[in-house]
Amino acid sequence: MANLNYTMFDAEKMSTAEYYGKTLCELAAKDSRVVGLSADLAKSTKIGALEKDFPERIFNFGIAEQNMFAAAAGMAEVGLIPFVSTFAVFASMRALDQFHTDACYQNMNVKVIATHAGLSFGQAGSTHHCTEDIGIMRTMANCRVIVPADGRETVNAVKAAYENDGPFYIRINRGYDMPVYPNSDYGFELGKAIQMTDGTDLTIIACGSCVIRAIAAAKQLEADGIRARVLNMHTIKPIDKEAIEKAVVETKRIITVEDHNIIGGLGSAVAETVTEFGKTCVMRKLGVPDTFSIIGLHEDLMAEYGYDANGIVKTAREIIGIQVIDEENWDDDDF
């Protein structure tokens, strides 16, 4: 994914959505089929960056998401590459039938870049939180789902969506993400997890804003002599089964961490692979515990629900203490 080397200085200044806007402008400059669609959130989602150089290729549908999603499918049918952006809660739920039937079912080349995902719009409350979208979107056949860890990864995710035909759902946060990567050249591959730290005591599989927290947790655990492997599972679908199976075999303990309901998202996707694999593994899913979140700062909410770095460390210590019993040694009387 060449030639987009933003400096550290840029990273601190640019919100994750700004990385998206910039990347989209680059794609638009080299490919006239790229168009942008928004629903009165062109500025907030940064898709509005297209306005400056490509005013005829940005369409503001007003506050009318259903119309926008179906129109995107129509544009794709005649050969355009529509990028659609609104808040994640509306991108994944307000026009879901349109996305399901008009884009996914018909395998249209529609790219959804959903912002303000998870609890990143913390103070706005449940009408603007989005902790269901990974679960929803990974059940849409044909749709690929990416949850980038920071701005640089967003650049790669958006490019991957552009390069691969068919529907994509990419979820990013509101505001700034702490940088995980110093630039975009770290070998991003669609569907391939990235190992951030090595370890054999347990594996922490994270996505999005939880990756940097998983790395911080691994550092804290090192002090206890616990060596944690951290995987950045940026692509939720198709999920990297190989990396998960390797983690089961080599570490026997897995914690998943996501800014999403613990039902249906990354944790569920990992659990599906683990159970089908059939080898013994202790697993915990961290995220929003199947509740509509309280309001507050994103950081505070992650701490409240136990999936900030401290929460991950706490859960890691717990499962390190659980003895993993191999199948042949199971005592049937235990049940």
Partner: peptide, 8 residues
């Protein structure tokens, strides 16, 4: 954080 009153 924790307030009963949020944006919406």
């Amino acid at each position: 954080t924790y307030s009963k009153l949020g944006m919406h």
